[in-house]
């Protein structure tokens, strides 16, 4: 696989096919744990670890697993990595493990992971599966950290635990409560949609300009031939 396609595979998970803002997958942890930026980051990294592990094993075992039982086989692979992550976090990061609670075992049913196993890792080589998992994982982590940061800044007036001047005295408590999760994600998704639309329009405009220039050059060339 060439470097350009690898870069494209990696970047698509972050921007064009961001699992949270564009594909709307893995909504439960996205909304459930993002009361602060640190929690979002921790959940994102835990999910990324599972995603990378399962993508690697699925891609290596794709020729061994019979087609009919592939989904249960994928689920067992994913559940094993979730158990590894769960127990490691309980051992090395007990406070974060406590905060994320139920949502760590629930990484098993995160549609992003099963989705990548089924749609990508079971059809592609080891290297591209690793790149795909890394891209999707970074995109997911980015989205969760962003949402966590927005909710933390508005809801408790802090950024990664550091209190901010004016906001710390006037926190909007709603944003760390459940309704705030829905509202913040709703408006963030709308902002992403808006900027994507602008971006697409800019790309279309540029393509049209290139076509026009090419057409003029072509016409000029033809008339030049005749004269």
């Amino acid at each position: 696989m060439s470097v350009t396609t690898m870069r494209r595979e990696f970047l698509k998970g972050i921007l064009k096919e961001n699992p949270v803002f564009v594909l709307l997958l893995g909504m439960c942890p996205t909304l459930g744990v993002t009361t602060s930026a640190v929690n979002g980051l921790g959940m994102g990294l835990a999910t990324m670890a599972v995603l990378l592990g399962s993508n690697i094993v699925v891609s290596l075992a794709k020729n061994v697993i019979p087609d009919k039982v592939r989904i249960p086989a994928f689920i067992v692979i994913i559940a094993s990595f979730v158990t590894i992550t769960d127990l490691s976090m309980a051992a090395f990061l007990p406070p974060l493990h406590e905060q994320l609670g139920l949502f760590i075992p629930l990484i098993v049913v995160n549609c992003v992971i099963l989705g990548r196993a089924e749609a990508f890792a079971s059809k592609n080589t080891l290297l591209s599966s690793i790149v795909d998992g890394a891209g999707m994982g970074v995109g997911f982590t980015f989205a969760l950290t962003l949402l966590g940061a927005v909710r933390e800044i508005l809801g408790s007036g802090a950024f990664f635990g550091f209190p901010l001047p004016f906001l710390a005295e006037n926190p909007i408590l709603l944003f760390v409560m459940p309704p705030g999760a829905f509202l913040a994600l709703g408006f963030l998704t709308a902002a992403v949609n808006q900027s994507r639309e602008k971006w697409d329009a800019a790309v279309r405009r540029r393509a049209r300009r290139v076509r026009e220039v090419a057409a003029t050059a072509l016409v000029a060339g033809r008339t030049g031939e005749r004269s």
Partner: peptide, 21 residues
């Protein structure tokens, strides 16, 4: 336009969650 689909659904869910709180 930008709010159509998922964003407006999420905001509605937020208001519903507010009511349930």
């Amino acid at each position: 336009r930008a709010m159509r689909g998922a964003p407006i659904a999420l905001v509605t869910a937020g208001l519903l969650a507010l009511a349930f709180s």
